[in-house]
Write a protein that binds this DNA or RNA. Sequence first.
DNA 1: TATGTGTGTGGAACCGGTTCCATATTTAGA
DNA 2: TCTAAATATGGAACCGGTTCCACACACATA
Lengths: 320, 320
Amino acid sequence: MTTIRDVARQAEVGVATVSRFLNGGYISDEKKSRVLRAIHELDFRINEVARSLSTGRSKAVGLVIPDLNNPFFPGIIHGVEETCENAGVMVMLAHTAEREDRVEAVINNLIQRGVDGLISASGLENPSSVSVPLVMLDRVNGTSAVDSVRTDHVQGGMIATRYLLSKGHRDILFLSGPLQNTGASLRLQGYRQMMEDAGFRPQWIEGKRFDFAEGYAIALECLKQGETSAIFAGNDLMALGVVRAAMEMGLQIPGDLSVIGYDGIDLSAHTTPSLTTVAQPMYELGKQAATMVLFRAYEESKRVCERVELTPKLLIRGTA
Amino acid sequence: MTTIRDVARQAEVGVATVSRFLNGGYISDEKKSRVLRAIHELDFRINEVARSLSTGRSKAVGLVIPDLNNPFFPGIIHGVEETCENAGVMVMLAHTAEREDRVEAVINNLIQRGVDGLISASGLENPSSVSVPLVMLDRVNGTSAVDSVRTDHVQGGMIATRYLLSKGHRDILFLSGPLQNTGASLRLQGYRQMMEDAGFRPQWIEGKRFDFAEGYAIALECLKQGETSAIFAGNDLMALGVVRAAMEMGLQIPGDLSVIGYDGIDLSAHTTPSLTTVAQPMYELGKQAATMVLFRAYEESKRVCERVELTPKLLIRGTA
DNA sequence: TATGTGTGTGGAACCGGTTCCATATTTAGA
DNA sequence: TCTAAATATGGAACCGGTTCCACACACATA
C-alpha cells in the first residue's frame, strides 16, 4: 500500500504538503502538479482508517434497521442514502433482525468503528446513553428527549377510521401490531378517538408480529364470528394476510368485508385486488432523518431535541 | 474518550499489559483483575479504528447489494450476517440501487475504510482489480477467475420448463429479465435446451427490469395474441405482474394460463393464488458466500478460484 | 530601515491501538 | 548448581494520516 510519505518522496515535497493538497491549504501550483502526478504514478488511495483516527471524524453515519424483510424499510433507506451521498457521507447499514438484544451491541459496534452519527429505526431502551448524535426513526421512545422523525400515526389512525366510517361501516375491527411499538399504539389511539367521537364502540386485537402470517391467522379466527364489516390492519403485510383469509372463507372484498392497510408499500398497489391503505412518506422520513443527523454531526450539535412528524396520506384503491 | 493509556494508569500497569489483557498473552491473575476493574471504573470502550490501523485488519467485511426493493436479497443478507456474526465479524452493508456506475465507488469506499473482504451481488466490470478477497454472489462475470456462489440457473431453467412440459404445455413463453444479467441468460439457456430436446419451439421476450411493472406490461401485450398456454417468468416479481395482467384480462389461472416464477421469495407463498416457482436457496447462498470470504480473509488467501453452484428447488403451488 | 501580513513549506508530534524487544522472575531439567 | 524455557512486564516504535509550529520569503506600510 502506498502512503502519503511515498507520495511525498516521489514528488520531492514534505508530507504536510501532500496532506494540504488532499485537504486544502496553501500550496503553490508547481507543487500541486508534482503531487498530482505522483499520486497517479503510484496509484495512491487515501487510507480512511488512518484519516478517521487522526481527525476523529469518519464521514460515515450508521443506519440501524430492524427488519429487511419488511418492505417498509427500503424506501427509508433510499431517502437516507441519497441525502448522505449528496453530503459526501457514507451510510453504514446494520440490521438487527428484530432481535431487541442485538440493538445495543450493533450500535456499540458502529460507534467503536467511528461513525459520526446514528439513525435508528430499532427501538432502544436508553437512547440518551448513546455518545454520538442520534435520530430515532419511526420508533420513538415517548419519554426520553431524543431527536426523532416519524409519521403522525394518531392522524394516520384517524384517517383510516374516518374513511371506513364515511363508507357506512360501524363494526370496524382494528387489528394492531405489537402495542409496545409506539407507532402501533398511536394508530390505536387515533382509531379509538375517531370511533368514540362517532359514537361507536372501538374493538381491537393485538397481533404479535407485523407480518402476513399473523394477519392471516387472526383474521381466520375472528371472521368466523362474522360481526365485522371492516378491518383496519396494523400494516400492509397484515392487511394482505387478512385479505387472503377472507378470500379463502369465500367473502367478497370489498363487498362483504372492507380492508384497509397501513404503510403504503409498493407491493400493495400490485395485489389483486389492490390494497386501500394509509401511506407513510417513506423516502421523506429517511431524508428528514438524514438531514437531521448530518446537521447534528457536522454543523451544530446543540441539544435542543427536535421532533418531526410527517403527514400520512390515504390511498383509495380496491379493498374498501 | 478513555484510552488504554488511561486504563494503564488507573490500574498501575503498562499499556502493553492492557493490550495483552484485551487480546490474550501472558498476564498474571492479579494484573488481570486490576485491569478489569479499571476498565469498568473508566467505562473503557476499545477504539476499533485505531485497532484497525495498527493491525491492518478490521474484522469487517463489505456486502454490496444491488437492490433492496427486491425481496430476493434479504434472505441472502440474513445468511451472510448470521455466518459472519458467528465468526465475530461485522457486515457492512452497502447498496448500489441498481446504478452500475456506483458499484466501483462503493467498493473503493469500503476498501478505503478497511474491510477485510467483500461479497458483491452487484456486477463488476473488473473484479480482479479489487485488492481484498472478493466473492461474487449470484451475478457472475463469466470470463474472469473470481470466487463465486450462485444457484445452478441452467438447471433451474430446465426444472421449470420440464414441469410445464409435464403438464402438457407446449406453447411456453419465457419472459426473461435483462439478459446481461448472467442468471437470466443461464435460465434462458436451460429453458431453450429443454424445449429443443422436447421438440418444441422456444420463444422468449427480454424484459428490461426484474420488476412487477415490467412483467405486467409485457404480459398485457403478448397475451392479446393468445397463443400462449404457459409463461415462465424471469423472477417472482415479474410472475406476479403476469398473474395480475392475466386476471385483468379475465383469464383463469391455472385454467387458461399457467405461470411459474423464479426465486421463491416469501411473498410468493402468500398471494392469491399462491405462486408456483423455482426457489433459490437464498439463506444458503449467503451462508456459502460468507464462509468463502471469511476463509479467504482470515485463513488462506491462496488464489485457486472456487465456484460453488447450489441446487434450485421446484415449489408446486397454485399457478401451474 | 524596521515592522508587519499573506503565502508557502517541511519536520515532528499526535490520534489510540499493537507488538517488538529488553529485562526480569520462576520453574523444569540435566 | 547451572542452564534453558516458560511466564510476566513495560517502554518505545509503529500503523498512515492531520496539524501545530517554526521558518522563509515577498510585498506593503509607516
